[in-house]
Amino acid sequence: MKPLDSVKGKGNLWIFGYGSLVWKPDFAFKMSKVGFIKGYKRRFWHGDTFYRGDEEKPARVATLIEDEESCTWGVAYEVTDSQIEGSLQKLNLREVVLGGYITETVEFIPKEKGQGALLALVYIATSDNPIFLGPASVKEIAAQIATCSGSTGHNIEYVVRLAEFMRLYCPEVEDEHLFSIESAVLNIFHDCGGIEPPDQKSILPGAT
């Protein structure tokens, strides 16, 4: 059974976002829930040659790496009925065609108490992808992010907005990888007198 087939229900589908989807879903959805998935850690190990970088300077964006001891926080979006086809078409172009991600199914656990686990579709970039960049030190990742921009903006915006989401919606969670990269990137700009970080106000969807 294909991952997509396994999450298609009778008129509704949940999609889990852990990168730019947490603050810029760009598709129609009925509702959203903040929560987490187990068995994966978020890492800036994937390349982006379109949205936040280009062929000469690939950006660093997030993917999920399997790790039994970890969990990754993000947002799950429910799309229903007529929203499903259009949403999946947009995500296929954004995440698969241009991003190089594949689809998997995961168990999403909402942060809100009393809510049961949900089966959700998630997009993951694996090491066999041509633009997968792999692990690097925080310093190396930050230096790469500081020099990259693409069709939707600077690579630093991706990092800052994702970190801001975590602080606003998951303040009790310490995402060491994300926050250490954000700190290193901002230090580069402050030390060099570079561009200002993006405005962090009103950047997130109406997550509940």
Rank of each mutant, 00 (worst) to 15 (best):
S127N: 13
S149L: 06
T152F: 10
A120C: 01
E157W: 06
A136V: 11
L118M: 07
C148A: 14
S137H: 10
E157H: 10
K139M: 12
A143Q: 13
V159Q: 02
A136Q: 10
I124R: 00
Y158L: 06
T152C: 07
L119Y: 05
I131F: 04
C148D: 10
N155R: 07
L121I: 08
V122H: 02
G116I: 13
I131N: 05
A120F: 00
Y123R: 05
Q115W: 12
G134P: 04
V138F: 04
G153C: 01
Y123L: 01
A125G: 10
N129L: 11
A120S: 06
A125E: 10
L119S: 11
A117D: 11
L121R: 00
I124Y: 01
T126Y: 07
S149P: 08
A125H: 07
A143H: 08
Q115L: 15
T126E: 14
T147F: 10
T126Q: 14
F132K: 11
F132Q: 08
S149A: 10
L133H: 02
Q144S: 05
N129E: 10
I156R: 09
Q115Y: 09
I141P: 00
N155W: 02
F132G: 12
A146G: 06
L119N: 12
P130W: 06
T147G: 13
V159C: 05
A136H: 09
V122P: 00
I124A: 03
G114F: 02
Y123K: 04
S149H: 04
I156T: 09
A125F: 07
T152S: 08
A125N: 09
K139G: 09
T152L: 14
S137M: 11
E157M: 09
G116W: 07
N155S: 07
Q144V: 12
Y158M: 02
P135T: 07
F132C: 13
V160D: 07
E140P: 10
V159S: 03
A146S: 09
V159N: 00
D128M: 09
A142L: 03
S127C: 06
I124E: 05
V138S: 03
N129V: 15
G116N: 08
G116F: 10
D128Q: 09
G116E: 13
E140M: 11
A125W: 00
V122G: 01
A146L: 13
G114E: 04
I124F: 02
N155Y: 03
V160R: 03
T152N: 10
E157I: 04
G153Q: 01
G134A: 05
I141R: 01
H154T: 08
K139H: 13
S149I: 04
L121S: 05
Q144M: 10
V122S: 07
T126M: 13
N129M: 15
V122Y: 05
P130F: 01
G134F: 01
S149C: 11
A143W: 02
S137Q: 02
S137K: 11
Y123C: 04
A142D: 04
Y123E: 01
A117N: 14
E140D: 14
G116P: 03
K139N: 11
A125I: 14
A146Q: 04
V159F: 04
A125L: 15
Q115R: 14
I156S: 06
N129H: 15
S137I: 12
I145M: 06
D128F: 09
S127T: 12
V138H: 03
V160P: 00
H154W: 12
I141M: 08
G153R: 01
A136T: 11
I156G: 02
H154P: 12
L119M: 15
I145E: 01
H154Y: 06
A117R: 12
